[in-house]
């Protein structure tokens, strides 16, 4: 809801402003940075080979793909048992669990990385991160509603929010099995501040923006929403990543800041564990 309000405010005020305003690319010289390990890992309640990507950070105008980190030891523990992840031969720097692995709700997961062999990183350093899988929340249904003004199809959620606990939701949207929310800025995250413990009776959680060519549903198309229950760290990470990957209007933004992660010893990125359920609807305009 806060997001929706912010968009409204931004739209109303900035729309007037930007009509008088221009933009252009400029040349800037930026300072360099030290190399750090970057972790990007997600374990869910799905049964599959879950991936953890290790890479290195680079200078801001590096302008090339940043290299993966090969040959590290990566292990994952659910508090009872620990497994080692295997590096994919075809994708150096990407490590996976066995394909029959799945996360269990109400468990803490610990990711442990050692033996990182890269310039600028001490090979004796051990990097760790923890994440908790929140209990599954299964939506009852979703519905579509067109908003003429915004020119988008809103996706409305019907679902009982568990009381007593703070829940963090992340929604991925698919149109005919094609992932629409492929960037942080497109992912929808909400907390239950405004409907904690209530029945979410048609809450606007995501949308298809019909101004984008790949987001115009036709009759019979399948719209699917994957509902992830995530922990607070991941929620904060995405919230910050959304701010840092969209243009900022100085009128409304605070000073930029580093996206907060949960990896120890100065590594960047996030390791997250989440429960996931899916619901779909057939589009009828």
């Amino acid at each position: 809801m806060q997001k929706i309000l912010r968009i409204t405010i931004l739209f109303l005020l900035v729309q007037q402003l930007f009509s008088a305003c221009g933009e252009e690319e400029i040349e800037l010289e930026l300072e360099g940075s030290t190399t750090r390990l970057v972790v990007d890992g997600l374990v869910t309640t799905d049964t599959m080979a879950h991936k953890v990507r290790l890479s290195l950070s680079g200078d801001y105008f590096h302008n090339q793909s940043l290299p993966g980190v090969s040959g590290a030891q990566v292990s994952l523990s659910d508090g009872l048992a620990s497994i080692d992840l295997q590096e994919l031969a075809e994708e150096p720097g990407t490590y996976t669990t066995p394909s029959n692995y799945y996360g269990k709700p109400d468990h803490w997961y610990t990711l442990r990385i050692s033996g990182v062999d890269a310039a600028g990183i001490d090979p004796r350093e051990i990097f760790e991160a923890q994440s908790f899988i929140a209990p599954l929340v299964t939506p009852d249904s979703i519905a579509m509603e067109y908003d003429r003004f915004w020119e988008l199809w809103k996706i409305l959620l019907y679902c009982q929010d568990p009381a007593e606990v703070e829940n963090y939701y992340l929604f991925h949207t698919y149109l005919n099995e094609k992932l629409i929310t492929d960037r942080y800025a497109k992912v929808s995250i909400i907390d239950d501040e405004f409907f904690n413990g209530n029945y979410a009776n048609g809450v606007w959680i995501a949308d298809l923006d019909t101004r984008e060519e790949d987001q115009r549903p036709k009759a019979g198309d399948v719209i699917k929403v994957a509902c992830y229950m995530i922990d607070h760290n991941y929620f904060k990470f995405i919230e910050a990543a959304q701010i840092e990957t969209t243009p900022r209007a100085p009128l409304f933004s605070g000073a930029p800041a580093n996206v907060p992660g949960n990896i120890s010893n100065g590594a960047l990125g996030i390791f997250s564990a989440a429960s996931v359920s899916r619901i779909s609807t057939v589009f009828e305009p």
């Binding site: 300072e31 360099g32 940043l66 800025a185 990543a241 990957t245 800041a257």
Partner: peptide, 26 residues
């Protein structure tokens, strides 16, 4: 505050900042 570095996460490039207000606007 301007970025000095970046890292990849998902399909995004995330900026890394050094010190607060260390750079200048033109």
């Amino acid at each position: 505050t301007f970025p000095v570095g970046r890292f990849e996460s998902g399909n995004d490039l995330i900026p890394i900042y050094s010190e607060r207000n260390a750079e200048r606007m033109p």
